[in-house]
Write a protein that binds this DNA or RNA. Structure first.
Lengths: 147, 147
DNA sequence: CAAGCACTTTACGTTAACGTAAACCTCGTC
DNA sequence: GACGAGGTTTACGTTAACGTAAAGTGCTTG
């Protein structure tokens, strides 16, 4: 039984406060169950901008959060382009001009509408799934009674 | 002012009970705001199976419902393959064997889990959107007070 | 009967979001 | 000092879900 030796970086930091922790690409990949390739791709698409230490990428708490938000957006069917539009505007917010800010509010309202429609879709799809489920169980019950 | 002459088929049927109506591909396309190409593609992928009248496709109420469900599934991020798996099993239900039915229940449980996670995602994303919204309005307020 | 729709098939093109492979560096360690 | 486990870049491949273009069929309408 060889103990899977804990990656040095991971172990050496687990006592640090979250805000100051940093991560390698592999760590993040495991945390969110994606491949490093995915994370690099998101960087290339302007969704992440990790610091470098020599050649290696160093991810900080802020990057981790951004990745989390990105993946959540994806699960909800937003494209990377849409997600980027929001997060970059969010970052540019404090010194953004009024036009940009209004544009941001516009986008947010849009996303909200989208979410509302999804909620309704989920409600309806749930009902239909329940219906199919009941029918299937019914058929199974009858299969049991004959034969 | 030339009246846009109502398509013969559409007008001639609007008094019929829904169950017996039938639709052309163009009608369906307009109803759901997709292109005919999309509908043909769904057929090619085994999601629809309209009858033919000569060479033309004739869609009935059942087909319309299937298209509706398909598009709803898409909005929720399901792939056409996933959607097909459910709808074809649903159709094969009454005379499906037990294994198939159990498999169907399995799939349904899976979809349900998926929907639950999406609900949570929506909840969280709503909060974040609200947060960004508030910040943006705050900045706008301050912009108004200076200058 | 020519024109104009709405439909048809066939087939190649396109975009997003990665996967995969090759070739390289840089540690710690056996 | 070889080696394995991580990391890196570059670049071509792949899949889903259609878009788009070409070329033809069939109605009905001026």
């Amino acid at each position: 039984m060889t103990q899977p030796s804990a990656p040095a970086n991971e172990a050496s930091q687990e006592a640090l406060p979250r805000q100051h922790r940093h991560y390698t690409i592999g760590e993040l990949a495991r945390m969110f169950e994606v491949t490093p390739r995915t994370i690099r791709f998101y960087e290339q698409e302007g969704l992440l901008a990790p610091r470098r230490e020599g050649q290696k990428r160093i991810y900080r708490e802020k990057d981790r959060v951004r990745l989390k938000l990105t993946l959540r957006g994806k699960r909800l069917g937003f494209s990377l382009a849409e997600i980027r539009e929001v997060v970059t505007m969010y970052d540019a917010m404090p010194d953004g001009n009024a036009r940009q800010l209004w544009r941001l509010l516009e986008i947010l309202a849009d996303k909200r509408d989208n979410l509302e429609r999804q909620l309704e879709d989920i409600r309806l799809m749930r009902m239909e799934i329940d219906d199919v489920d009941h029918r299937a169980r019914e058929v199974l019950r009858n299969l049991g009674h004959e034969a």
